[in-house]
Design a protein around this nucleic acid. Sequence first.
DNA 1: TTATTTTTACCTGATTTCAGGTAGTTTTAT
DNA 2: ATAAAACTACCTGAAATCAGGTAAAAATAA
Lengths: 212, 212
Amino acid sequence: MNTSKKIKIAILDDHPLIIEGLNLLFSKSEDYEVISGFTNSTSLFNFKKLNSIDILLLDVFLKDDNGIDVCLKVKKYNPKIIVLGMSSQSERSIVLQMIKNGANGYLLKSANLDEFIYCIKNAIEGKIVFSKEVETLMNIAHFSDLKSIPRLTQREKEILQLLIQGKSTQEISEILFLSFLTVQTHRRNMLNKFQLKNAVELINFVNQNGLL
Amino acid sequence: MNTSKKIKIAILDDHPLIIEGLNLLFSKSEDYEVISGFTNSTSLFNFKKLNSIDILLLDVFLKDDNGIDVCLKVKKYNPKIIVLGMSSQSERSIVLQMIKNGANGYLLKSANLDEFIYCIKNAIEGKIVFSKEVETLMNIAHFSDLKSIPRLTQREKEILQLLIQGKSTQEISEILFLSFLTVQTHRRNMLNKFQLKNAVELINFVNQNGLL
DNA sequence: TTATTTTTACCTGATTTCAGGTAGTTTTAT
DNA sequence: ATAAAACTACCTGAAATCAGGTAAAAATAA
């Protein structure tokens, strides 16, 4: 870590207001500086000095893209860039996916300004950081989830996607050119995998755990 | 409208960052001033000078409360206060409910800074205002919705709530001390009301139109 | 190449949901 | 007081879902 220079922060958030706020927050600091703010992912990836970024504060809900994919791309490009996910509401599933994709932490935008600073500091030191509320959300059944939840196969995902739209087994079989009976089997397998009772429960479960 | 004084803006948003940003935005203006920012609804309602507020910028997703209820309370207290809803993602249902509760407009936080100013200006002049994205979202089937969508009765809502949790008709009947057949009738009535095929479609419809 | 996973498909049977109709009671609004 | 709406409950029958099992291709990984 080079201490002679300020730590360079970039922001990707489709809310100009948030960028303004963060800018203001760090403008007083002697250790950090915001070198650029982007409102969409393409302008981030077109950024010439991508490699000079130390920390990327990354909103997960973007207009043109989503933070989960952006995180993966950034980490692939340069794993040394510290990526901190941000959003307004925190969902377990999203936080889990971000961490799975290499993010170094997750902050709620509603966090106190102190919390922002504190988390960034710790992230630089190599820790995985969460703002308070995210932490409590995560601790309920902490990290076991990433392994214990069986995942869906490709076909299952396709069927699930149609199921979520309210399509019946018959309709799904016609859309995917499968036997009615095959679709039934897949449905049953999904219910069995997660120990659920019916389609509604399945959809709830999938939404809550971001399995699609 | 008193032009000798600045127009007084209050902000209720659980994101300190947003409040900071808006503060900065209006700090340059000669026409507007931010007189106070709140991060929860109780502190807003404890505010002594509530009546001096001209415009309330109101986040709909709050920790302790929700903007839809807050809007109603504020308008009840003083209908002259101009209330503009804000959120990160826009959902038809929420926007509709806000307007129904007397809000004077709705802005996405991702709106450009110019858009904020523009909308506030027009709201003061008595218009119902939307930021661009909200406008396109609303225009798809514009305001007919408020009337044309038949609404759910109390009992139907109770049953729907359980249905959404994945409960079966049998379970629901036990929970609500009703006949199995009665619950079936209510389910059927709901499907008929909205011309839907099955429970999953019903749940989607309700979520999309905020009927619960 | 072999083992494993995935995808496909069938059978049987129980349970649940969906669709149509009717109808008495209670609550709410005019 | 009367009409309208909401709530309750029943009947019948068709359709769909759920639950158990088996099993053979096909694709993927070791």
